[in-house]
Design a protein around this nucleic acid. Structure first.
Length: 398
DNA sequence: TGCTCCCGCCACTAA
DNA sequence: TTAGTGGCGGGAGCA
């Protein structure tokens, strides 16, 4: 795959890199040689199609362009020009890619391409960080808690005084509960806390730490924000999660599915790859009875369903929904984990301050030990697969 | 009709 | 001062 992508990118860049940018193309998002029709079918030459402009598809093309051995540096202007998109969209992509270790920012407008070899280490680091956060009441600065607290908005803007929501969210995840915490954050911190990259990491942490392999974006937003936030906050967060999910989908880290019982769309974690003979994480298997492939997946059309991991999903989500309705976050996750006892409960990165127990410590360590092998396997096997290899290759090599 | 998510404005940051 | 960065939400495509 990499070779194909590399050749494709080389081929593409050879034609486009030196050329002036295309003059107001009708469908500017996709340069002619990188068009991949995520939805399949006749939209390739439509005047306008959202599918052609999806962030996931853009990410796929971005990767196709730069995932080569001879690529070390990525210029944002260069990427935007080659892909025929606004620089703004490139920021969205690189922020997500950076948060999972594929890119590293070197300087203004310049990134270093690490490639997919960086993903396992980044995920491992994320999980370790999340575990540390669970162990320690003093959370590191990039924790979920920080990104989740829209009450900061309230403090800074002195607006939207949802006192109930503030209290709840703070009690759950706000490090400013700490007596020595600064009473006000710098605006730059505040801005950083809401970054797409951080949100990506926290979204991934949900899967890594909660052992929840299927979750809806609504629920993710609730978890990341804390319960009881204003509807507008929730909507905004969900919008961003859609962006992130599309990119992660295109990287095959997650998969969009639909629960058979509720028909509610959800995302399933694929990142912990099991090495199968000659296969990567995107083995095509028929859908399980618990899940149906979602009809609408921009940028990717993933087909790999891990039957082993699919069982938890819908029931857990339903339980979660019920529990959320009951308004008790902690109980929700105790039930989600289906383990009843609080000793086995994994709070995730937004654990309530002071919720540290030795039992949790032991549980997490056991889980971590088990998952280390997965990281190692992943390092060798992780590669994104374009949803339709044949079609992509055809597009790239007509 | 509601979900999905592209698009671009504009506030903020860093050089 | 200005170019780079990216949060944010309106609103349109899509199922």
């Amino acid at each position: 795959m990499a070779a194909a992508a590399a050749a494709a990118a080389a081929d593409f860049s050879a034609g486009a890199a030196e050329d002036p940018p295309p003059q107001a193309p009708p469908a500017p998002y996709l340069p002619p040689r990188l068009v991949v029709d995520g939805g399949g079918g006749p939209c390739r030459h439509h005047a306008y199609s959202r599918k052609q402009k999806s962030l996931g598809l853009l990410c796929t093309n971005f990767v196709a362009l730069y995932d080569r051995d001879d690529v070390e540096s990525v210029g944002l202007d260069d990427a935007a020009r080659r892909l025929g998109v606004e620089r703004r969209r490139i920021y969205d992509i690189v922020n997500v890619l950076e948060s999972i270790g594929i890119l590293v920012r070197r300087a203004k407008n310049r990134y270093t391409w690490i490639g997919f070899g960086g993903v396992p280490a980044a995920l491992k680091e994320l999980k370790e960080r999340a575990s540390r956060e669970m162990m320690s009441p003093s959370m590191d600065e990039t924790s979920v808690a920080n990104v989740s607290d829209d009450e900061d908005d309230d403090k800074l803007d002195d607006a939207d005084g949802d006192a109930e929501s503030e209290k709840l969210s703070q009690s759950i995840d706000n490090p400013s509960d700490k007596p020595d915490a600064p009473c006000c954050k710098l605006r730059s911190d505040h801005r950083k806390e809401k970054s797409l990259g951080l949100l990506t990491q926290n979204f991934v942490k949900l899967f890594l730490t909660m052992e929840v392999d299927m979750i809806s974006l609504d629920e993710s937003a609730r978890l990341l924000l804390g319960e009881g936030h204003a509807e507008s906050n929730m909507r905004t967060k969900v919008r961003r999660l859609y962006d992130i999910a599309n990119v992660l989908s295109s990287l095959n880290l997650i998969e969009k599915t639909q629960q058979a019982d509720s028909r509610k769309p959800a995302f399933r974690w694929l990142g912990q790859a099991k090495r199968n003979e000659g296969a990567t994480i995107t083995d095509a298997l028929p859908p399980t009875k618990k899940t149906l492939p979602n009809k609408r997946t921009f940028g990717t059309d993933l087909t790999n369903i891990d039957t082993k991991r699919s069982n938890l999903g819908s029931t857990m989500e339903n339980k979660a929904k019920l529990a959320w309705d009951g308004g008790n976050m902690l109980k929700t996750f105790q039930r989600q984990l289906g383990q009843g006892s609080t000793s086995d409960f994994v709070y995730g990165p937004f654990h309530p301050a002071g919720a540290r127990t030795q039992e949790i410590d032991r549980t997490v360590q056991e889980k971590e030990r088990k998952s280390i092998q997965d990281w190692e396997n992943l390092a060798a096997s992780f590669r994104p697969q374009y949803q339709n290899q044949g079609e992509l290759n055809n597009s790239l090599f007509p």
